[in-house]
């Protein structure tokens, strides 16, 4: 690290460089009185410079970062860190593709769509998939499921978990010949055990739980995913003061973003669809209004295209807008079936 980067005044920096002190290491062995006489400055000023220099060198050598403010990161480090983070797969390859691998940790993702499009199904799928062990390319984390609507069905979670375990054993048989290594240690029931399920019956409970999450998370560091299904439901009743609602929701979203960063976990917020009245006509949009739409950095909209379900990236700082089909099967979220199969299937019904 060079002198020019030290957070000292320009005149001090100039004096240091003209006296031949160009690197931090050259300052490491010099005494304050020697420095004072070399630069023709007061001794206390020299002590100050040495203090800054030693702090700079300590940070510089121990962390490998150049940061002067504690905890700050530069973009290069963040990029490296992001590349090392594993995504949570959605179990639908097409969907993972447009999402850049799946649901990212450290981010808040909002997913919305009409009733019956599969929001809850996707939520359950993610709560299961976050637990895929590291040796299978997963995160091996736990999930928090905050259910505000009562649509979480434990038998459906078990069904998806069973399919996930089956897929893992299939995968390991396919990849490895070693019989011992084929053993998938995780059981469907373990998967259910690692989903922390909260049923919320009012918005006061919802706000309280969001506030409590930080404490819960610090006791359960292995939680890698928080799902709120849905963020909306309790906020669409009884709120006459829309400005208050906006502030409360903004607070919730800030807290969740902080949690996501602090514990490097993924937060998925499911949202409903509503109609918006503009210029004399009704249009479809995600609920909670315009100011809420600013508070989520990533937004995916699920919609019907004919008889096929599609996901569309509506807003993201890093992904290009794209859409991909997916389907909800008895085994969970999967790639959309080829059309031919689809039509065969339907003619049987």
């Amino acid at each position: 690290m060079e002198i020019s980067r030290l957070p000292i005044s320009a005149s001090q920096r100039g004096k240091l460089i003209s006296a031949g002190y160009t690197s931090l290491s050259s300052l490491s062995s010099v005494s304050s009185s020697a420095l004072a006489s070399d630069l023709r400055i007061s001794e206390s000023e020299a002590v100050e410079i040495l203090k800054v220099a030693s702090r700079g060198s300590r940070l510089g050598w121990s962390d490998g970062t150049n940061s002067v403010i504690n905890g700050a990161q530069n973009a290069w480090d963040m990029l490296h860190e992001e590349e090392s983070l594993t995504c949570i797969t959605t179990s639908c390859a097409d969907l993972d593709n447009i999402l850049g691998g799946g649901i990212n940790c450290k981010e808040v993702m909002e997913i919305g769509g009409v009733p019956g499009i599969g929001k809850t199904q996707l939520g359950i799928q993610l709560a299961v998939n976050v637990q895929i062990p590291r040796e299978f390319g997963g995160l091996g984390g736990k999930a928090i499921y905050i259910d505000t609507e009562g649509s979480f069905m434990v038998e459906r979670a078990l069904q998806i978990a069973e399919a996930c375990v089956e897929d893992m054993s299939e995968y390991s048989r396919f990849l490895r010949n070693d019989v011992q290594a084929c053993q998938v240690k995780i059981q469907p029931k373990d998967i259910l055990e690692n989903i922390f399920y909260f049923r919320i019956c009012s918005y006061t409970e919802q706000i309280a739980l969001i506030n409590y999450l930080e404490k819960f998370m610090s006791e359960h560091k292995d939680v890698k995913l928080v799902i709120v299904d849905s963020i909306t439901f309790h906020f669409r009743q009884d709120f006459d003061d829309m400005a208050l609602r906006t502030r409360v929701l903004g607070g919730i979203s800030l807290k969740l973003m902080k949690l996501a960063k602090e514990f490097s976990l993924a937060v998925v917020l499911l949202n409903q669809v509503t109609t918006k009245y503009t210029d004399g006509s009704f249009q479809l949009t995600l609920a909670l209004g315009d100011s809420w739409s600013h508070s989520c950095t990533n937004r995916v909209i699920l919609y019907w295209n004919g008889d096929e379900r599609y996901a569309y990236i509506d807003k993201s700082p890093s992904l290009q807008s794209a859409s991909a089909p997916y389907s909800v099967t008895s085994r969970g979220i999967r790639n959309s079936a080829p059309r031919k199969y689809c039509s065969d299937h339907q003619s049987n019904v």
Partner: peptide, 14 residues
């Protein structure tokens, strides 16, 4: 607030 343990309740909704 405590999470419910999914295994402590019946594995199918009644």
């Amino acid at each position: 607030m405590r999470p419910q343990h999914l295994l402590h309740q019946p594995l199918t909704t009644q």
